[in-house]
Every structure is written in structure tokens, then in C-alpha cells.
């Protein structure tokens, strides 16, 4: 259908406010403005006993085009100066990059103002709830992003929160988001939460006993992250170019960049 507005309403039918505006242009319209786009890419986060790892590929796409091979999706929050020195919270955003950047800047400003006003760093718990509110406040024109927030909680344990675009959130052990989320998440379910892994010594059928997941150590998690991304790169065209990882511990944030395939 070219455009509904080109139809004149039958004269006996009731008219509605602004109806004239609808048919004013008469001719079919070429474009409507759609304020979103998908910039592809994927992110994931896993929390351990004393650390949290967030990771994301660095490719940015528009359709089949690669915009750039290096556009980070991971952002340090708070800390001082443009390099966020002393920061202990990381936000990853994937989806519509412009919204992602806007969201990141808003939360960063809030975290910095919190430090200025209270003289101490915001807790991940508080930051997580604030992020939820920011997203929910824009629920009628959402930030089109899947956010994952990582840090260290007040007990020194790794903390990871994942969000939907309108602010619904949950603390989790692991989460994949973005273009390759459907590829990576089942892998994480299996490797981190040991889903579908059973004790080989348990009986058959209903007597099968699930293996119990326990917090993983850092090197294991880093390996899982790398494997998840190298696999995703093979199967998803919007994922690739580089892998940016941030490891958050009580001592701060370590940033690691490793190349991925560019094809």
C-alpha cells in the first residue's frame, strides 16, 4: 500500500481531528524517517568470584557495509578525566550505536556527579538500578540497545547486570547480547552454567544428575570468551575485526585487545 493518507475518506463517514493534515500532501510519500538503525556486533559478560569480564567485538556495520573495524562497545564509567582513571564499573552496549553512546555518556555523567556530591564511588548495585531507571524513563522512545553492566559488588564479588532496551534488568552469572547473542548464549549456558551436562556416574533417564555450576577462574573465563567470539565470527557477518575485553577486579580495570578475523 503506497500510503494510507492518499485515500480520501468517504464523505458520509465521520471525520477525525487532524484528518486534513493526513491527506494534505495528497501524493504518496517517498520516505518516512525511521530514527533507528542496527550497527551489529555482539557483547558478552561473565562474572567470577572476584572479577567480572566484559567483552565485545569492535566492528560497526550498516547493512552489509563495515563502517569501521574499530568502534568500541565497552565503556568505563566514572573515574577521573577523559581516560576514566580509577574507574571500576564497565558498561557495554550493543544495538543502535548512537543511542549506546548517548546512554553511556548519561550514565558516566551521573556516576561522576555521584562522586562529586557524595565524595565516594557509586556502588555497582546503585549504578545498575540507576541505569534501569534511565532506560525505563525513555520507554516510549527507547534507547535501542542491550546493555550489560559489570563491576565488583560491595562484598568484593564479581557483579554483572543485563538489561533489555526499556530497563528491565537482572543480576546474572553470564549474558550474551547483540547480533550473535543467539549463537553465544547457548554456548555460555552449557559452559558456564553447565546446562545439559550431567554427572556421568548418575543413573539413566530421570535419575540423571545435573552438574553443579561453580564460579570459574579467570583464565578459564577468558578462554570461554575468546572461543565464543572466534566461533561467532565464523557464523555471523556482523561480528569480527577485533575483540575488546575488560577485566574488572578490586584493583581496577585491565583492558585487552585481540584481533579477530576481518572477513
Amino acid at each position: 500500500m503506497a500510503s494510507i493518507s492518499s485515500f480520501a475518506m468517504p464523505s458520509e463517514a465521520p471525520t477525525y481531528s487532524f484528518a486534513a493534515a493526513q491527506s494534505a500532501s495528497g501524493q504518496p510519500r517517498q520516505h518516512g524517517f525511521y530514527p533507528y538503525t542496527d550497527n551489529g556486533g555482539s557483547t558478552l559478560g561473565i562474572s567470577g568470584d572476584s572479577f567480572t569480564i566484559l567483552a565485545g567485538d569492535t566492528r560497526s556495520t550498516s547493512g552489509y557495509n563495515i563502517n569501521t573495524r574499530y568502534a568500541p562497545k565497552l565503556f568505563k564509567l566514572g573515574g577521573s578525566g577523559p581516560n576514566h582513571e580509577g574507574s571500576k564499573i564497565v558498561l557495554s552496549v550493543v544495538g543502535f550505536a548512537a543511542d549506546g553512546n548517548a546512554l553511556q555518556e548519561r550514565l558516566d555523567t551521573i556516576v561522576k556527579m555521584y562522586k562529586y556530591q557524595h565524595g565516594k564511588d557509586i556502588s555497582v548495585h546503585a549504578c545498575a538500578q540507576r541505569l534501569s531507571h534511565i532506560l525505563y524513563n525513555k520507554r516510549f522512545f527507547p534507547y535501542y540497545v542491550h546493555a550489560i553492566l559489570g563491576g565488583i559488588d560491595e562484598e568484593g564479588k564479581g557483579a554483572l547486570y543485563s538489561y533489555d532496551p526499556v530497563g528491565s534488568y537482572e543480576r546474572e552469572q553470564c549474558r550474551a547480547a547483540g547480533a550473535a547473542a543467539s549463537l553465544i548464549m547457548p554456548f555460555l549456558d552449557n559452559q558456564v552454567n553447565l546446562k545439559n551436562q550431567y554427572d556421568p556416574n548418575s543413573g539413566p533417564g530421570l535419575e540423571k544428575v545435573q552438574r553443579v555450576p561453580k564460579p570459574l577462574d579467570r583464565t578459564t573465563v577468558e578462554e570461554i570468551v575468546r572461543d565464543a567470539f572466534t566461533s561467532a565470527v565464523e557464523r555471523h557477518i556482523e561480528v569480527g575485526d577485533g575483540l575488546q575485553m575488560m577485566i574488572i577486579t578490586k584493583d581496577g580495570i585491565e583492558e585487552v585487545y585481540t584481533p579477530l578475523k576481518q572477513d
Partner: peptide, 10 residues
């Protein structure tokens, strides 16, 4: 001043 400074950076 803090607000203005953050605004400049943003």
C-alpha cells in the same frame, strides 16, 4: 562550574 565543565566535555 562542575556542570559547565561536564557539559564542555560532553
Amino acid at each position: 562550574m562542575k556542570q559547565q565543565s561536564l557539559a564542555s566535555r560532553l
